[in-house]
């Protein structure tokens, strides 16, 4: 079951190290935090690619790298026919107009001093100023697309509920008809009753416009519902990557297995699954060998000394584990 989709964006060996603290003279420099450490993936056109993992695993940093909010320490991002690192000004402009985002917290992602009309139209004003005259019509159309009233264009964000605000954020992300929308935890700040509505809206939008999504989430149910392919991240690395159904029904990596087991609802009287013990090691001093070895229930000798390379274990299903 490999994807037949044309690749839209490809990340190769992305790394992002953050310098820890201010370097003081006479003190040994502190080890950098390896937020993203050698991550590679491809997002196909029209595809939803999900990244799951615990907080601190580097999934949001990966999103920021694709949004050009952070500069990668190493590695490349290829979009269509060019490499972001060496792109011309014109290509970068094209990239920015083609990649938009929806963030987790709808209270932080809308400027409280701007009317909804301006919030939604801002990407157009910045990228296609010659279309200024069309804006009222475009905004009305976008509001309808996300299930809001056209008359709400003149309102300020505080007049909306959380779910409505996230709809406004989605309308803004759609304004330029982008080819990729990065969804960083798009529903986790919302009430459970609203989540399904927003997830369905995202699905509808993808069906209608055919853009790709990069979905960042810690909630497995969200990812399973929306994503076509899923990558599991642990401590800055992708440990397993497969088609969504394949990953959730036949998880190979012990970390994926533990995540899925921990998220499953228990039947009455059922024994809870063994819980992963210990904390995530510090990303500035990852353990030698496999990064999961300190918490892995199946770790054996080799795991503690030798880092496993990701290998394709089934068609389209890659995992980095010495067990296979």
């Amino acid at each position: 079951m490999t994807t037949a989709r044309a690749p839209l964006i490809e990340a190769r060996n992305l790394r992002k190290y953050f310098r820890a603290g201010v370097g003081l003279p006479f003190l040994a420099p502190r080890a950098p935090v390896r937020a993203v450490d050698d991550v590679s993936f491809v997002i196909g056109a029209g595809e939803t690619f999900g990244i799951v993992g615990e907080s601190g695993c580097g999934k949001s940093t990966t999103a920021k790298l694709l949004l050009l909010l952070e500069r990668p320490t190493a590695g490349t991002i290829h979009f269509q026919d060019f490499d972001i690192a060496v792109a011309t000004k014109d290509e970068l402009r094209r990239y920015r107009a083609s990649v938009q985002a929806v963030f987790q917290d709808p209270w932080s992602s809308l400027n409280p001093r701007m009317r909804v009309r301006r919030i939604i139209a801002e990407p157009i004003l910045l990228n296609e100023p010659h279309r200024k005259k069309e804006i009222p019509g475009v905004v009305a159309d976008l509001l309808r697309q996300v299930g809001l009233e056209e008359t709400m264009a003149g309102n300020f964000p505080h007049e909306f509920s959380g779910g409505q605000r996230q709809r406004v954020a989605i309308a803004r992300a759609l304004a330029l008809r982008p080819q990729l929308i990065v969804l960083d935890e798009p529903v986790s700040a919302l009430d459970v009753s609203i989540r399904a509505q927003i997830m369905n809206l995202l699905k509808e939008i993808q069906d209608r416009f055919g853009m790709s999504f990069l979905l960042i989430a810690h909630n497995l149910a969200t990812v399973r519902y929306l994503a076509h392919r899923v990558a599991v991240m642990y401590l800055g690395q992708i440990v397993e990557q497969a088609e969504a159904e394949e990953l959730f029904t036949r998880p190979l990596h012990p970390y994926t297995q533990a995540l899925i087991a921990a998220a499953r609802l228990l039947r009455p009287g059922e024994e809870p699954p063994p819980v992963l013990s210990g904390d995530i090691p510090s990303p500035s001093a990852p353990p030698p060998g496999c990064r999961f070895s300190t918490r892995c229930p199946k770790a054996f000798g080799r795991c503690f000394s030798e880092a496993p390379a990701p290998r394709e274990l089934a068609p389209g299903h890659r995992a980095a584990c010495h067990l296979y």
Binding site: L68, L69, R96, A101, S108, L110, N111, I119, E122, L126
Partner: peptide, 24 residues
């Protein structure tokens, strides 16, 4: 986040200061 989103949409520093930061 709205400042990050403005940057994603291609806004420069001066635009962000006058449209997003000063009004707040």
């Amino acid at each position: 986040d709205f400042v990050a989103l403005a940057r994603v949409a291609g806004a420069g520093g001066t635009y962000i200061v006058f449209h997003h930061i000063l009004p707040n």
